[in-house]
Design a protein around this nucleic acid. Structure first.
Lengths: 246, 246
DNA sequence: CACCTGATTTGATCCAGAACAAGGACGCGT
DNA sequence: ACGCGTCCTTGTTCTGGATCAAATCAGGTG
């Protein structure tokens, strides 16, 4: 059922270094996200229980309702998290990008599904191991709690976006949010990468694919953005921010 | 600016007992919520830093954007939490009821406002004290983290409700959710107390007051509920659940 | 009681965005 | 190059819920 490809955790890294030492370039890239999220002091402990894995584009690696056996951290690529209604309606509850955790809720079952938008690199932790680590290292729990409450703040903002704002406001706010997220990962840029499809944006923003498309076209027509494949270029930062502003 | 009435924390309870001993009826009622949320073992520590307060109906005791100096726990009554847009549009992000915490996010500023729907009893904790307690008692942090992730799950469900479901589904789901919450607090009942106004339900569900009113009327016309002042009575549990079901 | 004020319901119209429909545009395999 | 499938855009129509407008109702209060 699971389409993810497990990569045996290298007890000794390809570069010859032991876990806990400075990482080789390849491993550093993979662990960067976790590192950034947790602070380097936890890395050695994490290193003992992490399993590096990948998920190819479009594969589902968390299934809503299934027993939550793993906690994930994204190191590369973009993941969409979503809830499905029985009749097929879908709500994307978030996009996870490098540095983000999935499955933080210490519940028995996953409350959402997750799949890879593009090829994704993941750190997988066994639930049990993760739980032990949390219990042993309160500092770690604290970080996790901060992360969870931040997620909560985001979720509350998204509620406001979906519940009370127009299609144009939603799209503009989404673009700006994506821009800021990429900026934290790879530095500022006027080009906003949008690896997900229109339908994903629609299901995230509580709109239809047609409305998303039309709204982007309108923003482009107004000279605010330029639509390019897999991305948009911001032409008029001020105007875009003005539309998105609460 | 703050309209809440601070009640000096009784070093010796009215009944003559010391803090940490079993509580007198009055105090027990007040502390019940915290107790239920955290487990009785933390009570003694909490007791040293808690300030019992009240907020009269309609008063605001958390202001979005202000420095977060307190953490609250509701012991009595209902609180609405909301975000305001600059043009006055409002999204209610949740209702807090006895046993619920407010201001968990360990952020500098409140991300929402909160006011009392009806007369509310609160336990207020100084941010600094609360923080110290968390640091000293990992078990306590763990409880809090569980609470926060549960909130996150609720928020994600609410996103789905607002983003992808019809007015009738939203109202039905709201009624069932309120029923379950009251059931945990005061036991099961076919009467669902709704102390908040129609406009609060509307702002919670991403609808207008008229749509909420019409939808309730329709449910009543269909013999599913009976509308009574400040509440609704459930007449056809099956049908209501069928509408609310995802 | 008569009056006022705020909440709720009900009615009539409107409109943003959904739904339906039809082309493009692009990539991929043959 | 051609056909095919997927995604995206654009055009048209439709509708659920918003908006505008009045009643109705429920508490106060003098």
């Amino acid at each position: 059922m699971t389409e993810i490809i497990e990569i045996a955790h290298p007890r000794v890294h390809a570069c010859g270094r032991q876990p806990g030492e400075n990482y080789c370039d390849n491993c550093k890239v993979r662990s960067l996200a976790v590192c950034a999220a947790l602070g380097s002091e936890e890395l050695p402990e994490l290193d003992n229980i992490v399993h590096h894995t990948r998920a190819e584009a479009k594969t589902t690696f968390i299934h809503q309702g299934e027993t939550a056996e793993s906690v994930f951290s994204v190191t590369e690529g973009v993941v969409r998290l979503y809830k499905l209604l029985s009749d097929g309606r879908r709500q994307i509850i978030g996009f996870a990008m490098p540095g983000d955790f999935l499955g933080l809720a210490l519940h028995n079952r996953y409350g959402f599904s997750a799949d890879a938008v593009d090829p994704v690199g993941l750190c997988r932790f066994d639930r049990r191991d993760f739980d032990n680590l949390i219990t042993a290292k309160p500092h770690f729990l604290r970080r996790l709690h901060e992360f969870a409450t931040h997620e909560l703040v985001i979720a509350q903002e998204q509620m406001t976006l979906i519940g009370r704002r127009s299609a144009e406001e939603r799209v503009a706010a989404f673009l700006i949010a994506m821009r800021e997220r990429w900026a934290r990962i790879k530095g500022p840029s006027v080009t906003i990468q949008l690896p997900m499809q229109r339908i994903d944006m629609a299901d995230y923003l509580g709109l239809t694919i047609e409305t998303v498309s039309r709204t982007l076209t309108k923003l482009a027509r107004d000279g605010i953005i330029l639509i390019v494949p897999e991305a948009v270029r911001v032409l008029d930062e001020k105007k875009l921010a003005a539309i998105a502003r609460a």
